[in-house]
């Protein structure tokens, strides 16, 4: 599925990702944690194709070289990014946006476009998944949405686009407990053998609802530790102190072994 090797990204000469390696297999859920500014969002956007980075290394999805593609081609190849800060687009109707997105992806994949009526059924099903009121379809994209509503709208888009690889950047931040559960069950419902997920989060709480197969710790633009979900529990108790400002050789042994269920 996804192979990332020695990925580097810098902005205006300032390095942000410093040789990141990651393997994500089909159907796997990976959690990515790390201190503020460590490069988690940059990693997500480097995979999604944001402009303005000097990029090095390789990233392939199902063998296709992502790094040379335009963002829309990556979407067609199956990459979806849930934004940490979803963008407000005044004047653009949410339903129109969703349908245009779906049909663009379908066209690029050589599938037939979906008509307005059939799309409505798709949209309604997806909205039920995230328990979103239908009114949101007729509002401008994210404009005036609350923080939590924006995050639901991201999952709604994911449900409509059915990506191969979903990178969810702090989709849990700013959610109340109920919303967290709704979003988590939405993501769980979309889990499947053909869909992989990278969840960027600061909170182990999310991982209670969506049990990851792997947890990675990103510090200074590189993965410094990987483990199973118990790594997140460790981080919850100890923070990133073990990984930051230390020579990595000093990192204490972590209670990983035997913790897997």
């Amino acid at each position: 599925m996804l192979h990332v090797q020695n990925l580097t990204a810098s902005i205006g000469g300032t390095p942000i990702l410093n040789g990141l390696d990651l393997e994500v297999g089909p159907g796997e859920v990976h959690a990515m944690m790390g201190p503020n500014g460590s490069g988690k969002s940059t990693f997500a956007h480097a995979l999604a194709g944001r402009d303005g980075y000097e990029i090095g290394g390789t990233a392939t999805l199902d063998g296709a070289d992502l790094l040379t593609m335009e963002p829309e081609a990556r979407a067609a190849a199956g990459v979806f990014i849930g934004f940490q800060y979803p963008v407000e687009i005044p004047g653009v109707n949410n339903m129109y946006f969703l349908r245009t997105a779906l049909n663009s992806v379908r066209r690029a994949r050589g599938e037939t476009e979906i008509g307005a009526r059939d799309f409505l059924a798709v949209a309604h099903e997806a909205m039920e998944l995230v328990e979103m009121n239908k009114d949101f379809l007729n509002r401008p994209v994210n404009a005036g949405f609350s923080g939590g509503e924006k995050k639901r709208n991201e999952i709604l888009q994911m449900a409509v686009l059915e990506p191969r690889l979903a990178i969810l950047d702090e989709t849990d931040s700013g959610l109340d407990i109920d919303a967290l559960q709704i979003i988590a069950s939405g993501v769980n419902a979309l889990r499947g053998p053909e869909r992989s997920v990278i969840m960027i989060t600061h909170y182990q709480r999310l991982l209670d609802y969506i049990r990851p197969d792997f947890v990675h710790v990103l510090v200074d633009g590189r993965i410094v530790e990987s483990g199973d979900h118990t790594l997140a529990l460790h981080l919850e108790d100890h923070g990133y102190a073990d990984f930051v400002n230390h020579d990595l050789d000093d990192t204490p042994a972590l209670p990983l072994a035997g913790a897997a269920t």
Binding site: E72, A75, E88, I89, T100, L102, V105, Q157
Partner: peptide, 26 residues
């Protein structure tokens, strides 16, 4: 808005359509 353009493109909408959508939105 470059951010909005990028957002639309990450959803699979190609650049010229994304521009049109934003202009129409305005």
């Amino acid at each position: 808005d470059d951010n909005a353009l990028y957002y639309l493109r990450t959803r699979g909408i190609d650049e010229s359509d994304a521009r049109r959508i934003l202009i129409h939105g305005f």
